[in-house]
């Protein structure tokens, strides 16, 4: 596969070298990655839980979703910015890691779903979409983002 030379180049990048050569950098960046996970997880889950009728039922979905949107975007940026140096430090390991590809596939799916379909449904006034639609969107969102999280955690267990 032609991606391997690219991953080899990425692993040899200055940032990758720096993270690999440091005792502290990887764990500290990863801890930031985890804090970002808590924030993005909370911001996404609270709207999904609302769609499922599990929390804040007296508040319109669209209001909650609009409030959470900048936090989702902000923490996603933090996740990507902290994720890049982690990836660069072990790009070749990631290339051979099944969990890494699961995570990246799920991430593309989760981002596309969240910023297109989910955004339309949660942005609509209450009543436009049926409770069944709400449940389906919430479960899809939880499923996709969970796959991202689990895939990410399992990169560390492989190899």
């Amino acid at each position: 596969m032609m991606l391997l030379p690219l991953f080899e180049r990425l692993e040899a990048s200055a940032l990758g070298e720096a993270v690999r050569g440091s005792l502290w950098l990887f764990p500290v960046v990863e801890a930031f990655h985890l804090v970002g996970l808590a924030v993005i997880g909370g911001a996404i889950l609270v709207v999904d839980f609302r769609l499922l009728g599990l929390t804040l039922r007296s508040h319109p979905v669209a209001r909650l979703a609009r409030d959470m949107q900048p936090w989702i975007v902000g923490s996603l940026v933090l996740m990507i910015l902290s994720g890049i140096p982690l990836f660069l430090s072990e790009a070749i390991k990631c290339y051979y890691s099944f969990a890494f590809w699961v995570k990246m596939t799920a991430l593309v799916g989760a981002v596309l779903f969240t910023f297109t379909f989910r955004r339309i449904v949660v942005g609509a006034p209450d009543g436009r979409f049926s409770p069944a639609w709400h449940r389906a969107v919430a479960l899809m969102s939880i499923g996709l983002w969970s796959a991202v999280g689990w895939g990410g955690r399992w990169i560390g267990f492989s190899g």
Binding site: A38, G41, G42, L45
Partner: peptide, 11 residues
């Protein structure tokens, strides 16, 4: 790690 999103994320 998953439960982190629920406990810390909601906190």
């Amino acid at each position: 790690v998953w439960a982190l999103c629920l406990s810390v994320g909601f906190a």
